[in-house]
């Protein structure tokens, strides 16, 4: 088809390039993750990405959509990658496949595919697993720095596929810092006591705190390449900082510091990579600030008073749900509507 109507300029940006930028920005944090926690993540990534591409292909075929055009937008890979980063390492293979299947089918294509899903597909998949398989989803492994042993890539694969005895490496599992913190606080322990546990590092969890730094750097790359705008990540961090700081100064003995909250769990990853998914986020400037702040605040609320140690996924889904409302009430003032009176 020829282009008969103006404008006749071809945009330099493309959706594929934006998604590719996200993948590039994820690489440093992913390497750090492997560095601190071992080969299990590679297994997760391989399983998640290959099953996501498989699901995407099958559904596109069923929906009679052009395969090449849709598969080359990298969106399935981004979803799978984020999902793989969220679930525990050394998860059984079926856990990954079920989660990804739910993300791709129910989270994405049942709504109409890319661009039409109101909820972040990776978070949909993750939350379904968290609710359905609590045991598997809360079995986390120690960072290598304080772990008595580590698994090779082959071991990790065999483990995940159930080819070796599952309980062999039970001693390597541990609660995450956020989990430990939550359980200890419920036992009325002081922050200073809790921090005696080896899972805690210089300001957050061992390993976790440095991975979070790399997510941050990846996020700066995304802002620098104009893949995302600063509003959402800044608002998420602000939401978390304002809430955690106000509670922290009231009772620093039994409440974790804002630094701990920022660099623990999924907050940094969420702020730069998950909350910024354009399809499910607010589109107006004001709306993005409200949306981001809501996520930051909700994460703190869930961590402090909710039933789960971390709350990024729930916070993002709740904020996704509010997007139509936020967008409706934050429409910018159209040029020439109610101009200032003084002319």
């Amino acid at each position: 088809m020829k282009n008969y109507s103006s404008p006749y300029v071809t945009p330099s940006a493309s959706t594929n390039r934006l998604m590719l930028n996200v993948i590039i920005a994820l690489i440093p944090g992913t390497i750090a993750y492997i560095w601190y926690f071992g080969m299990g993540l590679i297994v997760n990534l391989v399983l998640a990405i290959s099953s996501a591409l498989l699901f995407e292909t099958v559904i596109l075929l069923l929906r009679k959509r052009p395969l090449k055009a849709y598969l080359s937008d990298y969106s399935a890979i981004v979803t799978a990658w984020l999902f793989a980063l969220c679930i525990p390492m050394h998860s059984p293979w079926w856990l990954v496949v079920v989660g990804i299947g739910f993300a791709m089918i129910a989270g994405k294509h049942l709504y109409g595919g890319i661009g039409f899903n109101p909820f972040n597909p990776a978070m949909v998949g993750y939350v379904v697993l968290l609710i359905s398989f609590p045991v598997e989803m809360t079995t986390w492994y120690l960072p290598l720095q304080i772990s008595p042993d580590s698994l090779t890539l082959v071991q990790a694969f065999s483990y995940s596929l159930g080819l070796v005895d599952i309980h062999q490496w039970d001693t390597l599992t541990s609660a995450t810092p956020l989990d430990q913190y939550k359980t200890s606080l419920s036992l009325n322990m002081m922050i200073s006591e809790i921090r005696q546990s080896p899972v805690f590092g210089s300001f957050a969890g061992v390993g976790w705190e440095w991975i979070a730094n790399w997510w941050f750097i990846g996020g700066i790359y995304l802002i620098f390449t104009k893949t995302i705008r600063w509003h959402i990540p800044v608002a998420v961090i602000l939401g978390m900082l304002i809430l955690s700081f106000s509670f922290y100064i009231a009772d620093p003995d039994s409440i974790a510091s804002p630094g701990f909250h920022l660099f623990s769990g999924g907050l940094m990853l969420g702020a730069f990579f998950i909350a910024t998914d354009p399809v499910t986020a607010s589109t107006t400037v004001k709306g993005r600030l409200i949306y981001g702040f809501m996520i930051g605040a909700l994460v703190y609320i869930i961590r402090s008073w909710g039933g789960y140690p971390d709350g990024v996924a729930f916070a993002v889904l709740l904020a996704n749900m509010s997007v139509p409302l936020i967008d409706y009430y934050t429409q910018p003032r159209v040029f020439g509507m109610n101009p200032p009176e003084d002319h």
């Binding site: 959706t15 934006l18 354009p278 986020a281 107006t284 429409q331 003032r333 159209v334 040029f335 020439g336």
Partner: peptide, 21 residues
């Protein structure tokens, strides 16, 4: 391709419309 609601159109619209809407 499908609109991914990235909002770039909103940023450049001189009339401050919401082109994606």
């Amino acid at each position: 391709q499908e609109c991914i609601r990235c909002g770039r159109c909103t940023e450049v619209c001189p009339v401050q419309l919401l082109p994606q809407q």
